[in-house]
């Protein structure tokens, strides 16, 4: 990383799989709410997908709740909206649940769209939470914000497409949105990879590269190919499209799991100068 003197970086031990689950489930849930709002779903389909999206966000937050040291003080998380993205994430989550539950109650697409806006803010906050962690070089790269954000969109769209096939063949608009989200995610990965190369240590880069390879090959190229085949051969579309959706979702999840639990090396300590002892 540099020519300074000091002990080698080591992996952080404060956040484990429980924190990773928040970023995995939370972003997929937020992305699903966005996909539902864009699709124009109505009635029970809208209700079911909205509930699933909120359940995923809730599962992520519940997972973090199991990790914090003082769970009975969890409400204190809302005390610092001025500078803490974790507080802002909790506010966004509250808004998602309020608007989302109202949308489910009234089966209202407009309320679902408002909930989707809050979900976008929630996904953005998740990116900012990681980027604000100055102690982890692989996270503090600004491009990570957009990678986390686009990953949420791609995962949610993938989940939406996979679920939509259960009822009917997804609309072309939904498939188009899914494809765009996949392309945005892979572009964000490419930009992030360029930035993180200068910041992160070798073991972190190795972990990220393995996860990134999956993201590109299984999470982008394969789903796009499956969608293309499904487009031209409608008979197999009902089999291929859920596969494409699940691939996008699973690779996004594995990437974030790796990001939190495998690539989160600190930068150790570094001395730009050694002490000059004795006479000269």
């Amino acid at each position: 990383m540099n020519d300074n003197f000091g002990p080698k970086p080591w992996h952080q031990t404060n956040w484990d799989f429980r924190a990773a689950f928040n970023f995995m489930f939370g972003s997929a849930g937020a992305g699903l709410l966005v996909a539902v709002a864009i699709s124009g779903a109505a009635g029970n389909a809208l209700r079911a997908e909205m509930l699933l999206g909120m359940a995923l966000i809730g599962a992520g937050l519940l997972s973090v709740w199991f990790e914090i040291g003082r769970p009975l003080r969890a409400m204190n998380v809302g005390f610092n909206p001025f500078t803490s993205w974790m507080t802002r994430e909790s506010f966004a989550a509250g808004l998602v649940f309020a608007l989302g539950l109202a949308a489910v109650w009234f089966a209202s697409l407009h309320l679902a769209q408002a909930a989707a806006l809050a979900a976008l803010v929630f996904a953005y906050c998740q990116g900012r939470i990681l980027q604000a962690a100055k102690g982890i070089p692989a996270w503090r790269v600004p491009a990570l914000i957009w990678l986390v954000f686009t990953t949420a969109l791609a995962e949610g769209a993938g989940l939406f497409v996979a679920l939509a096939v259960l009822a009917d063949t997804p609309a072309r608009g939904a498939l188009g949105y899914f494809s765009l989200a996949l392309i945005a995610r892979v572009l964000a990965w490419s930009i992030y990879r360029g930035g993180v190369a200068k910041a992160a240590v070798r073991p972190a880069l190795a972990a990220l590269d393995r996860a990134g390879k999956m993201l590109v090959q299984l999470g982008t190229v394969a789903p796009l190919a499956l969608l293309l085949v499904g487009w031209f051969v409608p008979e197999v579309a009902r089999v291929l499209m859920p596969l494409a959706g699940v691939a996008a979702l699973a690779t996004g999840w594995q990437f974030k799991f790796v990001l939190i639990t495998r690539a989160a090396y600190n930068q150790g300590f570094a001395l730009p100068h050694l002490p000059v002892r004795g006479t000269r």
Binding site: Q12, N14, W15, V64, E67, I68, G69, R70, P71, R73, A74, N76, V77, F79, S84, M86, I129, A132, A133, K134, G135, I136, A264
Partner: peptide, 11 residues
């Protein structure tokens, strides 16, 4: 006040 989320330790 601290909830023990360890975000500070990460940061």
């Amino acid at each position: 006040l601290c909830i023990g989320c360890s975000y500070c330790a990460i940061a």
